[in-house]
Design a protein around this nucleic acid. Structure first.
Lengths: 253, 253
DNA sequence: CGATAAGTTGAGAATTATCAAGGGGAGTGG
DNA sequence: CCACTCCCCTTGATAATTCTCAACTTATCG
């Protein structure tokens, strides 16, 4: 996808929250990354395991998946290039969900011990990685509201608005147009409805000239109207608080 | 509710994750708490604001709420005594959700600057507070799977199983019986369905002799069968990883 | 005891699911 | 290059789930 070095993708993602100093960038640049490419529906991190690494996305899309006894699954978050998808495994004894690839997806893994050492040398990075997990939660809550209290068309519109907003930020959605390799079955598992219904919702949005979606290419024709249908408010996608200077103190203790 | 001092409730909650040393306990005991009592449906933290304090629950129940333009709301997480509900405001520039009281609820507020200073003196507390926000996310994901991929009866059964499990841990559910002041309208907003349907689901669970629920008192009659209907697996409620010793290093840097 | 909020029930409508069959595109092997 | 195949998308018909509206009953609290 991108020509940038993997670590630069992460650095850019963190700098979007708050500027880093050169020392922080150097610490990150010194991380030993294991790169791996995944294909559609591959498990990047498997539910029930206890990984020794965390990972971030270098290109493409990934999602978190929870599986049910009856074979069904719920996709409860969507991740794009630059997202540190699996910081969670740093804290979880056992993965409560899988991370799977939505289409081709490049991933960089960092060993937990290295990550921890890095944070031990930088309060700012500790703060920012924590913040990433908190911002993640804000996206999850909004997604939940879609699942619980929006009808399928509004939920779909909301998901598209969110995705477009996040991709624009990366410069990956020129003309409100972007590549998105999710199948309709994937979308069904995201929105908690059936594949057939996804198809009908999309047909409707298409006929209302709000968007087109074919061959893995989404084109948002009328963002305003889509956002209105979705009751979309993008403030939950904003960065969080910068590190308070007091948090710095601990280095001196 | 409890006779314990407010800060001891928080300490117990953190010690459930990992033992604290005396210094950590002293740091926490030195926090200046503002106590406040709330009634049903009161806002504890209001959406859209930028609070200067975080809060934890000292007694009773609270929930996170997101509101829609049409007046509807989604309750997307439920919190019990000891939960540090609003660590999120430490990182969020603007609250993306409200925290509201479900029935009478005692809350302790801590100023952000004090909280940050405390963490600056204790890597362990930093680690644990971060972990709380991560574990929170695991609950949110599971809730999401209920909203998206379980039918209303299974979702209700799941919520009851989760709640019982969490309250048992606090010793607050003797004989699988506990006080729970949520109204059926509250439950509807949690599960993303209508009040009328909640009523019917409860009637059904009652007639199947799985539980009773009246006068704000829930009695789980057959946890096994309820857990089976819900496809309930409690591993997501487990504590996370203890702090790695390397994380400690930063004090010496 | 009256007022207000919460729970219950019925009937009909909207939304979404399921089943089933057909169509199109992309890759593969002949 | 064509035939074949597989996967995904599309569409129709019918069924299940859940919603809305409305009336009524029961609790709760001053």
């Amino acid at each position: 996808m991108s020509k940038a070095k993997p670590i630069d993708i992460l650095i850019a993602s963190l700098e979007w929250l708050e500027p880093l100093d050169q020392r922080d960038r150097d610490l990150l640049a010194g991380l030993d990354l294991r790169l791996k490419q995944f294909g559609a529906n591959d498990d990047i991190v498997r539910s029930g395991t206890h990984p020794g690494e965390s990972c971030f996305i270098v290109g493409g899309f990934a999602a978190r998946a929870q599986y049910l006894a009856d074979g069904g699954r719920q996709l409860d978050q969507l991740h794009v290039t630059g997202d540190f998808v699996d910081l969670h495994s740093l804290h979880l004894r056992q993965m409560d969900h899988s991370v799977i690839a939505i289409g081709p997806c490049g991933v960089a893994f960092v060993r937990h011990d290295e990550l921890v050492s890095t944070m031990a040398h930088s309060p700012r990075l500790t703060w920012l990685l924590w913040q990433l997990t908190v911002l993640d939660g804000a996206l999850a809550r909004t997604w939940m509201t879609c699942l619980g209290r929006r009808r399928a068309d509004a939920a779909m519109a909301h998901l598209v608005c969110e995705l477009l907003t996040r991709l624009r930020r990366l410069g990956a959605a020129p003309n409100n147009c972007f590549q998105f390799p999710a199948t309709q079955a994937d979308m069904a598992d995201m929105l908690g409805i059936s594949t057939v219904h996804i198809n009908r919702i999309l047909a409707e949005l298409r006929s209302r000239r709000l968007l087109t979606w074919s061959r893995h290419e989404v084109h948002v024709l009328d963002f305003e109207r889509l956002a209105h249908i979705a009751d979309f408010d993008e403030t939950y996608l904003a960065p969080g608080n910068p590190m308070p200077s007091r948090f710095q103190q601990f280095v001196a203790t």
